[in-house]
Design a protein around this nucleic acid. Sequence first.
DNA 1: GCCGTTTTCGGCCCGACTGTTTTCAGTCG
Length: 575
Amino acid sequence: MSDFTNKGIARILKQLAVLLEINGENKYKARAYRNASRRIMDLDEDISDYVSSENLQDIDGIGEGIAETIKDTFKNGFCPPLEELKSALPSGLLELLELPGLGPSSAHQLFEELKIEDIEGLRKALKAGKIRNLKGFGARREEKLLSSVENYEKYRNVILLSDAQSQAEEILIGFQSKDDLECREIKIAGSTRRWESLIEKIDFIVVTGESGQFFELIAGMEFIDKILNQTEDKITAVSESGVEINFWIVKEEHFPGALIYHTGIEEHFNKLREIAAEKDYQLNKYGLMQDSELLAIESEEEIYGKLGLPYIIPELREDRGEIEAALSGNLPDSIGLTDIRGDLHIHSRLSDGAHAIEEMVLTAREKGYEYMAVTDHSRSLKIAHGLSLAQLKAEGKLIDELQEKYGDIKILKGIEVDILSDGRLDYEDEILSELDLVIASIHTGFRQSIEQITARITRAMQNPHVDIIAHPQGRLLGRRKSYQVDLEKIIKKAAATGTCLEINASPFRLDLDDINVREAAREGVKIVINTDAHHSDELNDMKLGVSVAQRGWLEKDDVLNTMSYKQLCDYLGSG
DNA sequence: GCCGTTTTCGGCCCGACTGTTTTCAGTCG
């Protein structure tokens, strides 16, 4: 009898669903698996308990068939029908679905008619002009797919910041269990340490005792796929998910210097080097030297200090003026996670969230938040079970009851109201006026012109009830580009109307991005950092949003949800 | 495959958009 986590089983069922779709089977069968996957993901109890007590079918969405599949998976240690499908279908078909504009049906068709098995095969067929002649395709679609393929290849080996962090974390944990003969010190550097939204490579700086043993240690880690290259001072490995991992091996006395060298972008380091030269030091990847002697230095702070600079946090080391600001004493007093007093964009089960409002309230309380806002979707977003007027009213009543029960957190009645394709909002003003907080956002009409989308958002901001524009760029990192929008205009309008712009902290979005956040704050726009949580775990994403704020040079006062509850009410009331 | 019954099979979150067609299937959110 093997053991699987809820996440593990959910992943298996989801994969099964996708493969069934590609295999051209009944789409509702596939949907049933996908549905079951979601239920298990959201389950509070362990799925293994259901298996051992033989009551899997008590779970909504799991019937005889799927219960049997799960039991078999536990029994065998693998999922028989999944393995069967995997051996029947080329594995590359799955990646075809990553392309926007290509779904399971088309993947099935491409495989059946042209024996296309992966993206490379598709690229060749597209170049050869073979696709346009297929039924349901055409010249235009061929052109779009080609651009999708090119975009995909560009991001092929890039992973989300949150994924890079969890992989890096696993590696660190792997080292913790070893004695310090093999690894005396290890720290994340590079773009992951700077909290860039997309990561190409994960860098570590390592002080080892016995480098031979260190190599074996890495090679033996279960999530390391292979070692690409090994020299005396660097090991390059590839993780199972295909991302490159560099271990820079340094001597203990070189650790702080190496950390600075491998953390900021090159231009940041070059400017530090120039400052060092002016002070008759030499700065290189080993550290700070004077008269060819390495100075005994313990930390990065000390190096910055010797150069006459305050410490510059990794998030700012992008050569966007931070050195100049440090020299003139104008570095931002960067906002931190502990400054955040509440989360103002949270979904519940009433629309498309995983949990009841009460569970989200309990999680927010655990985080020590002073306030939170329940902001489910509005009525026209049917796929997300957008709330009818009656449901919205019922939700308000429910919140009143919860507010009675939990006095130590303020629960705002909010909504994420859709900005419809024609620019109207999804509820009338009199409905919005009764709510504590109104977030407006775009979920339809992504392909409209820059003028249309900009006009939709500016019109929404002119509505006096709208407090926040959520995910203003509408991007999905590495997957979907931002819709066409004139952010300069949006920022100006936000400043003029007192509307807040959101940093959406979802690891898939991080929207606004750091550059535009900084621009908005410069123009005096108030920024709000929200998780857009659809699951209680996702309230933890706040740290990602804060990192965007830090990279955008924000200070505490630039951010709405660092305010006390009273200040927040005053602000919203006047807005 | 699951569910909810008008218990034995029909419907399955839904509507907009797109590119293909010339009335619709596939994709997306």
